[in-house]
Simulated assay, not measured.
Amino acid sequence: MENIFDSIVIGAGQAGLATAYYLQKNGLNYVVLEASEQTAGSWPNYYDSLTLFSPARYSSLPGYQFPGGPTRYPTKEEVISYLVEYANHFNFNISTGEKVIEVQRKDGIFQISTSKKNVFYTKTVVSATGDFARKFIPDIDGMDVFKGVKIHSSEYKNVENYKGQRIIVVGGGNSAVQIAFELAQVSNVSIATRRPLSFTPQRLLGKDVHFWLRITGVDYLPLEFKASVLDLGIYKQAIINNKPNRKSMFTSFTEQGVIWEDGEEEKVDTVIFATGYRPNILYLKSLNGALSTLDSPLQRKGVSQTINGLYYVGFSWQRSFSSATIRGVGPDAKYVVKHIKRLARIPTSYSHK
C-alpha cells in the first residue's frame, strides 16, 4: 500500500508555506504540491515596482522574521527571496512542478492527480492556491473589436513598452493606482472606475496604519472593508494634479478606443485591467458540493462546510481582515492545522492498487 499522507497542501506560496510550518511543527505526515518550480506563489507574476503594503515588521510568516529594517516596505524581489529562504530554512517537504489537475474522494481518502500523471493519497487536503492566481477581466461591450492592447495587470511589468501612449487603467485598488501613477510619468493615463477613488493614509500619528490595525485588534477581526488605496500622500495628490486623472468607467470599446459615459469616443492605445482575481480552485470541482455555483469555496474560517477533511488557507476575509496577506496566513494556517490534527489521529484501513 502506498503512502497515505495526513495532509496534502496544494500551493507553495505564502499560504501553503505557513500551513507546512504548522503541519511540520505538529509532526504530521504531509507534502506540499506546487505547480511552478519555485516556492514564491503569485509574487513572480506581479509588476516590477510592487512593494508590500505592510512594513517588514508586520510581514513575516510564522517562525521566521522578515529580514532587514522593520519599518521599510519590502520590494517584490525581497518577498520572493524571503519565501524561498523560508521554505529552505525549514526544509519543508515540497514537490515542485506538480500542478494539481483534480481532487477526488473515495472511502474517506482524497486522491490527487497532477500534471505529471502522479497520484497522491491523503486524509485531508488544504487548498492554499488562494485568491491571486486566476485573473479576472470583466466583459465589456466591444472588447472583441478593440484593436489596441488589452491586458490584465498581472501581465504588466514596467513602463518600458508603454511610453508616450494613451492608456486607461481599469480598477480602483492599490495596484490600479500604483500602475497608473507609474505610467503617468511617461504617458497620458486615466484611471477608470465605477466609484470615486478612496484613500487611506499609510501613516497616522507617525505610525504605519498596520501598527494601529494590530494594536486595536482590527487585523484579527472578521471584518470586510471596501477597497481603499493606502497612500503616503503621493497618489491622492497625483489624482488632484490629473497625473493620472480619474474618469467614470467607459461604457464600451470601439475598434480604436472607448466610449466614455458622456458619449465621447476616444482613441486609446492600451487598456490595463487591474480588476483582481478569482479563486484558483477549479481542481476541486470533482468534489461534489465543495464549490458554489460561482466556483467559490463553501467554507467557514477555512473549514469546508460540505466536504469533511477539506480546508482552505489564503482566501480573502477567511477568518480576519488580514487573511489573504502574508501577515495573516499564519494565524489561519494554525487554526486549520488544529482541525487537521483531529482527523489525522483517525486510523484508516483504505487500500488501493
Rank of each mutant, 00 (worst) to 15 (best):
W43C: 01
A18Q: 01
N308W: 06
Q237F: 09
L291V: 05
D139M: 09
F321T: 14
T124F: 09
A324C: 06
G41L: 01
H152P: 10
E98L: 14
G16E: 08
S316V: 08
D332H: 00
S198W: 06
L230H: 07
G233A: 06
Q202Y: 13
A40Q: 00
G276F: 07
L232F: 12
Y47C: 03
I281R: 02
V313G: 11
N308R: 06
D141C: 11
Y277A: 08
K285H: 05
N288S: 14
A12K: 03
V186N: 10
L61W: 01
L213E: 05
L204W: 10
H89Q: 14
D219H: 11
G130F: 03
N308K: 09
G142R: 04
K117Q: 09
M143F: 06
R134N: 09
T122F: 04
K236T: 05
L183D: 02
S322V: 13
A274K: 04
T348I: 11
E102A: 13
L33H: 00
F199W: 03
F211A: 09
S95H: 11
L294Q: 10
Y22T: 01
I10Y: 00
G206Y: 05
G171V: 00
W260N: 02
Y30N: 05
V103L: 04
P44T: 02
Q24D: 12
R203F: 13
W317V: 13
Q165L: 15
G171N: 03
S304V: 03
F53G: 05
Y21W: 12
T129Q: 02
R134Q: 13
Q318F: 11
Q178V: 03
T251G: 08
Y335H: 15
D262M: 13
T124L: 14
E155T: 11
D262N: 13
A35L: 09
S153G: 15
R72K: 15
G173A: 03
V329M: 04
R246K: 14
Q237C: 06
D262W: 10
N245P: 03
R166N: 15
V337I: 15
I137H: 08
R278T: 10
P297W: 00
A56R: 06
F273P: 00
K301M: 12
